[in-house]
């Protein structure tokens, strides 16, 4: 993890993000007309977020304590979110529970 690598990763990400934000203004017509792109654009965020959530957990150890902590923290996140519907509250509640478990049990 050299500084050069970190900078390159940041610049690559920024370039791709900017292209996605800017280029469609240059080619609005095909975007407007493609129902496939519209369908992908609507359905993709949901799936991408669940894939990413799973990805962030890929290095979880296969011990009962580790899997148990993750499961409890996930349940708290989802539970609080379905209950209150406040994104920040859900994120902080889930993270708080996980930090307590990870700092004491694991």
């Amino acid at each position: 993890m050299t500084n050069g690598y970190i900078l390159a990763a940041i610049l690559v990400t920024a370039a791709v993000t900017w292209a996605l934000r800017g280029l469609p203004f240059v080619m609005l017509a095909p975007l407007r007309n493609s129902s496939l792109l519209h369908y992908i654009g609507e359905a993709m965020p949901v799936g991408v977020m669940f894939v990413l959530a799973a990805y962030t957990l890929r290095n979880t150890e296969t011990s009962l304590a580790a899997i148990g902590s993750v499961t409890i923290a996930l349940a708290v996140t989802v539970g609080v979110h379905l209950w209150k519907g406040n994104s920040l509250l859900s994120i902080f509640a889930g993270t708080g529970v996980y930090v307590v478990l990870a700092s004491t049990v694991l």
Binding site: I91, V99, A102
Partner: peptide, 13 residues
């Protein structure tokens, strides 16, 4: 430890 769970929670939400 475990503050990186914030990213997981963000994506779940």
């Amino acid at each position: 430890k475990g503050l990186d769970f914030a990213a997981t929670a963000l994506f779940v939400v």
